[in-house]
């Protein structure tokens, strides 16, 4: 076994986890909401990208923004339907509704795209980089770069811009934000659109690594949940490091112990962490930061 190669695999996988989770991080941090349709939104993002490239003949560079647009619209529609429950912070209803949206998306995607697996090929995924025994694809490098860029950008927007300040106001106290003149509803819509767009972006970046199926999504939503909780709910920095840590853990555990028990082992670590540090890796106040 080549340890360096496993670390590279882990880093790529970890940045993929982080990228898929970034929208949920903000969603949980700002609106205190969960979206169990997240995995199916990932699936739809992957299929829209695939459809645009393979069926409509659009270039990959254009296909990803198209998928992001579709993802944002899905996010907005979901939020419109759940608006009342959002304001009432009715988590149980929201859990069930988002789970339901996931199944609807799954069914609709199977109708539209069929149930056979597809391969999303990009010029980057076909480009291999070999350095001695080490190996990765151009797509792998793009995932790492895109994840870092997106996390840095999100952190900067949250901390340093007017929009970020409004989002943090709503995250801390939506009622008080109203009195500061913030249109809280619009912020909720924006956060859902962001989640939809970023998970579609992640799908467009990550899905070329594996065959895509309309039945996928469960793995993604579970891993996202782990990353977000592990990182400290709502913490942007925490989610990034949690994603990378989970990726490294998965790659190394898979190589050194057994790939069959990786998820079980990851959850054991998560449970232990939640007992020892209930606030996650970056424990402190919850909320977008």
């Amino acid at each position: 076994m080549n340890l360096t190669q496993q670390i590279i695999n882990g880093l790529v996988l970890g940045h993929a986890y982080a990228l898929v989770a970034i929208g949920w991080t903000l969603l949980l941090g700002v609106a205190r909401l969960v979206n169990f349709g997240h995995g199916q939104m990932y699936m739809v993002g992957a299929f829209v990208t695939w459809w645009a490239v393979a069926q409509a003949g659009v270039s990959y560079v254009l296909a990803v923004p198209i998928a992001m647009g579709v993802g944002a619209v899905f996010g907005l529609v979901m939020q419109r339907v759940m608006l009342k429950a959002t304001f009432e912070k009715n988590l149980v209803s929201i859990m069930i509704m988002t789970l339901g949206f996931g199944y609807v998306m799954h069914g609709a995607a199977a109708l539209v795209f069929g149930s056979t697996g597809q391969i999303l090929e990009t010029s980057l995924s076909l480009h291999e980089v070999n350095m001695g025994d080490l190996w990765f694809t151009g797509q792998d490098a793009a995932i790492v770069i895109a994840a870092i860029a997106l996390f840095v950008a999100l952190k900067w927007v949250l901390d340093g811009t007017r929009i970020g300040r409004l989002v943090r106001m709503v995250a801390e106290d939506p009622k008080l934000a109203q009195l500061a003149g913030v249109n809280v509803r619009r912020v909720y819509y924006g956060v859902f659109a962001f989640e939809g767009a970023t998970v579609a972006f992640a799908a467009g970046m990550v899905a070329p690594r594996t065959p895509i199926l309309t039945s996928m999504g469960f793995e993604e939503v579970i891993m996202t949940f782990v990353v977000v909780v592990f990182g400290g709910i709502g913490s942007v920095k925490g989610s990034y490091f949690a994603g990378v840590a989970l990726g490294l853990f998965t790659a190394l555990f898979g190589a050194l112990v057994s790939p069959a028990y990786t998820t079980a082992a990851a959850f054991l670590v998560l449970i232990a962490l939640l007992v020892l540090r209930p606030g996650g890796l970056t424990s402190g106040a919850a909320g977008a930061h």
């Binding site: 009195l179 003149g181 809280v184 930061h289």
Partner: peptide, 24 residues
């Protein structure tokens, strides 16, 4: 009108209790 519209129209409320953003 919803609260933020009233606020923007010039009616400001300083509530009792939690009235500042603690993390800002």
């Amino acid at each position: 009108w919803v609260p933020h519209e009233r606020i923007r129209a010039g009616l400001a409320l300083v509530p009792e209790g939690r009235l500042v953003f603690g993390r800002m």
